[in-house]
Simulated assay, not measured.
Amino acid sequence: MNKKSGLPAISIVSIVATCISSLAFASSFGGATGSATVDSKALIASNGDNEYQYNAVLLVVDPNDGYKYIGNQIVGPEGGSRSPWTDMITRGLNEEGLAYTWTYVAPDNIEPDSGEAFGITFEQFGRMVLSQAATVEEAIELVDEYPRAYHGNFLFADASGTMAMLEISTKSYEVIFQGDDGTIGRANSWLSPEMQRLSEASDDMSDSGWRQNRWDELLEANSGSITEQTMMRMASDYEGALEHGWSIESHRCDPETTVCRSASTSSEVISPSDGTFWWNWGWGSGRQPRFPEQQGIHDRSWGVYVPFKLSALKPGEYVTKDSRLTPLAIRYIMNHFEISTPTMEIDSIKGQSEETWVRTQ
């Protein structure tokens, strides 16, 4: 049922921009649809990488004036400074089959960043697009219609198999890919000439450049045979981590100085046509942290993607910021799987050696 009836609890009157200190943040995503996937449906996968004091919670929201959705929300440290994305639903799926994910990129100086711009904030955007857009086309219309105090790379997909990737700044945006066939990946850089004028591009041997190229490599190698499990393997890829500390599965520890900057707070694979949000707290492989004294509670990384079927979920919190399943989640899992921790075998994929895939069982 279409419950959409205007912008939900986000009025222009309430939109404010605040000056927020810049904090380290990284993430990456990949998407595939049409001939690239086994059954032609759209699939998107992403990792949310953040400083170790930030974590993720999993929520289901059913607003009175919009679509029901499940989403990954970033939670900051109590009493700490707010980041631009604190409390943002950084990736999610709604009951109409619209899914999205995001990576952080900021304009350098030609356009205002989120702390200087007037418009929809990061937090407001996640709630708006998931509650109000049923299709990729409607999501792009929302990007275009309202002033923006958010920016980055945004990947959208819907139940029809349409996928779109946008590079978005506060004043400008470019639709880089829109269609129902192909693959695309991104890290924390704008790559189009139109948007590169706003932010310095990452070179191939930067952190973002490495993850970008690795996504492209794996998506190309596996095009035509991509499934949910394939995307899980890609999101958990460890290539490069031991060499220079950069990888898609981001533990982000410098192998020479043993300094850890940030980690994957969560990882997900989203199937819009199936209405399923596969979610993992922490990094997808679940391997043990290399420097646990610096990495807080991330030794609790699950190492397994749990399939959350939105149509079967009641509103509420399903996973806490310290990785624990809530009673809502436990009841859902027991009712649908008759086991306490759903697991699945993930077959090998092209372009990935066993040395870069060591899964904690």
Rank of each mutant, 00 (worst) to 15 (best):
E217T: 06
D49F: 00
Y54W: 15
K314A: 12
Y52E: 05
T360M: 07
V306M: 09
Q361R: 12
S22R: 15
K309Y: 11
G209K: 05
M195A: 04
D62K: 14
E239P: 02
P292M: 07
E123D: 11
G79Y: 10
N55A: 14
F29H: 15
W283D: 06
D39W: 13
V105K: 00
A36F: 00
L7F: 14
L166Y: 01
Y332P: 05
I349F: 04
S262L: 14
S223F: 00
S264D: 14
S169R: 03
F125C: 02
P8D: 12
S206H: 06
S202V: 03
V105N: 00
N94W: 10
Q352F: 01
G316W: 11
G284C: 07
E228D: 08
Q73C: 11
G97W: 03
Q196N: 10
Y104I: 02
N55Q: 13
A329Y: 03
E137H: 10
S28F: 00
Q212V: 02
R82V: 00
G185H: 05
Y67M: 05
C260Q: 09
N55K: 13
G80H: 03
W190L: 01
D144E: 11
A329H: 05
E167Q: 02
L7Q: 13
V136Q: 06
A133Y: 04
M334T: 11
S83L: 03
V57T: 15
G66Y: 08
P255C: 05
I10C: 06
N188I: 02
D181Y: 07
V175S: 09
L142H: 07
T276M: 11
R331A: 12
I120W: 03
R91D: 07
L130D: 11
A99F: 06
F25Y: 13
D180R: 15
P8V: 12
R359Q: 11
Q212Y: 14
D158R: 07
S199N: 14
I20Q: 15
V175L: 01
E174R: 13
H336A: 07
D65A: 13
D347G: 09
V129I: 12
G34V: 02
G316A: 07
F308D: 04
E249F: 02
V129N: 01
F308Y: 15
E96D: 05
S189F: 03
A201T: 07
S247Y: 07
M334N: 14
E194A: 14
D203N: 11
V105S: 04
A24W: 15
D158A: 06
V259W: 09
Y104A: 04
G286A: 06
G275E: 11
G161R: 11
I20D: 12
Y67N: 08
R82C: 01
I89A: 03
R252G: 01
M1V: 10
V143F: 13
S11F: 10
L130M: 09
F25T: 15
A157I: 08
E174Q: 11
A9I: 04
S311P: 01
A117W: 08
F337S: 10
T170R: 09
F25K: 14
D87W: 06
T341M: 10
W85N: 01
S236I: 02
S340D: 12
A241I: 10
F154M: 09
D216Q: 04
T33M: 12
F177Q: 12
T121H: 02
E137W: 02
F154C: 00
A149P: 00
M195F: 07
Y332S: 08
T33Q: 05
W278T: 01
G240L: 06
T265Q: 05
T230S: 10
W190S: 08
